[in-house]
């Protein structure tokens, strides 16, 4: 059982969280100008980093999405913070 710290609620069990995707992805727009490759990259492209990783998570209990930096091998969590008011 991993323990993540929601920036709003504090440390909670991993079962309260839902993975939202890697951080830093920008939705390509307007659609009419987006190539098929670019769109496929937005939908499916992943860094899937082995090691330090920046991710968006949802705390299901409070409904807030936030940024988490963690290590995908050791599972160490470096930091969590609200995405509010900044670019993730």
């Amino acid at each position: 059982m991993q323990c993540f710290t929601c920036p709003f609620c504090g440390p909670r069990d991993e079962t309260e969280f839902f993975y939202g995707g890697e951080a830093g992805k920008e939705r390509p727009e307007p659609s009419a100008e987006v190539t098929a490759e670019r769109w496929a990259e937005w939908l499916y492209g992943e860094t899937n980093s082995k090691g330090p990783s920046r991710e968006i998570w949802l705390h299901l209990t409070c409904g807030e999405f936030f940024l988490m930096e963690r290590h995908t091998v050791t599972h160490e969590v470096f930091a969590t913070r609200a995405t509010r008011g900044e670019e993730a």
Binding site: M1, Q2, D13, E14, T15, F17, F18, Y19, N48, K50, S53, E55, T72, V73, T74, H75
Partner: peptide
């Protein structure tokens, strides 16, 4: 397991 991982071990949940 619900958390993306390269750690070859399982978690209790």
């Amino acid at each position: 397991d619900r958390v993306l991982s390269y750690g070859q071990r399982g978690n209790p949940p």
